[in-house]
Nucleic acid binder design. Structure first.
Lengths: 215, 215
DNA sequence: CGCCATATTGAAATTCATCAAATGCGGTGG
DNA sequence: CCACCGCATTTGATGAATTTCAATATGGCG
């Protein structure tokens, strides 16, 4: 875990979500680590013992098969937390998608954080199970629609959505190839449901249609 | 939630796993509810406020799309716990697969169960995320192999595995149709990897091959 | 022993992946 | 500021895997 810890990081002025509940934010200020695009935050098999809050940037959590196939189980945007796991070691990889600042909360043996962690773990569990429905039972266009709706909601419901991740990341999150993801974007564009402002930002023209597609 | 609570249930003498940690089992004995095959334990939208331990039988947790497509996110066998969720209401359905006895632990507002629940939630989270890899990135035969390996492990690694659920349940768990599940079973049989003793029990002839397929 | 639901098998259709080529965006340097 | 370069993305053609539709077989239970 090669972190570029810095004390003079300029934090993003526009966090997508409020910070953690006051109970977590109180006490001594936690250090912020900076990770360049593509760098590893932790690896599968590594010792766990901390959890993380994204200050700015975006993080992908994933797992690999022996032959290199990758499944991204979650993206984490500014304000969101990740990294708490069962057992002493990480079961997944965490990487910065682009330049990312992360606040690290070390779990020291003494303090009991169950109260804070349980709601986060339960929320993560619900998200993962909902994602199972998408991967198990929805077709390509429904998957992309569900993904876009989710991103809209996590970015405050604005018409314009930023996609910090590549098409490959989106594919590996949705269980599709990049070609299929690209074709679906084109189809949604042709239907007048979305508009591609540039590769990384989408304008939602028909939120209701998208909503219905993603169920 | 139509439970047939009974005080004279004969518990299965062979729980697949030990009961909950002593911290949960201590205190007043929790009531056991009996659910016939196919009956609902709780429904999506229903008020939460308890968690459950399977005493005997098996439970499926699932979610539905508007058009009836179903994704089973988890099966729970004897000894396993389920039902804790984020928020005040259930996001999923829980049904008894066959005649099932469930020990109900009500969460009363006073007592704090974070310590007991957090490890369970984290374990569930890990399981769900691993299942995401299966649904997102593995083909039909790999999915069935992963499923069988999981069932073997949860039943103590014996050569003979009991499958309490139907092919339809397995399909809805693996994101496949019943026909595909059936064909894969046949293929595994023809390859000499498994032997179908009857519809609900499988003998594992080549555990290593299965293990490798399921990654 | 026979019935009926569940499961298996078969053939055709569909969706998505793969392989391949072209486009274009974003960043760099002149 | 503009042109160029490299890489991500898009688009196209083909193929493979899985679904769908349909028929048959099986076996669990009365």
């Amino acid at each position: 875990m090669q972190a570029y810890t810095s004390s003079r990081i300029s934090l993003s002025p526009h966090l997508a979500q409020p910070a953690l509940p006051a109970t977590l934010g109180s006490g001594p200020v936690q250090p912020i680590s900076f990770f360049p695009a593509g760098s590893e935050i932790y690896a599968q098999g590594e010792k766990a013992g901390a959890f993380y809050q994204v200050e700015f940037g975006a993080v992908r959590i994933y797992r690999l098969l022996a032959d290199g196939r990758r499944q991204i189980s979650a993206f984490h945007l500014a304000g969101e937390t990740f990294g708490f796991e069962a057992g002493a070691t990480h079961h997944f990889f965490a990487e910065a998608i682009n330049a990312t600042g992360v606040r690290v909360f070390r779990l020291n043996a003494g303090a009991d954080m169950s109260h804070q962690l349980l709601p986060l773990a339960l929320k993560g569990l619900t998200r993962a199970q909902e994602h199972l429905l998408v991967l198990g039972r929805q077709n390509a266009i429904e998957r992309v629609a569900a993904f876009l709706v989710d991103m809209v909601e996590r970015q405050g419901g604005l018409r314009q959505v930023e996609l910090p991740m590549s098409r490959m990341d989106i594919g590996d999150y949705l269980g599709l190839t990049i070609e299929t993801v690209s074709r679906v974007f084109t189809r949604l564009k042709d239907k007048g449901v979305i508009r591609l402002l540039n590769l990384r930002s989408v304008e939602i023209l028909k939120q209701d249609v998208l909503q219905t597609m993603g169920e």
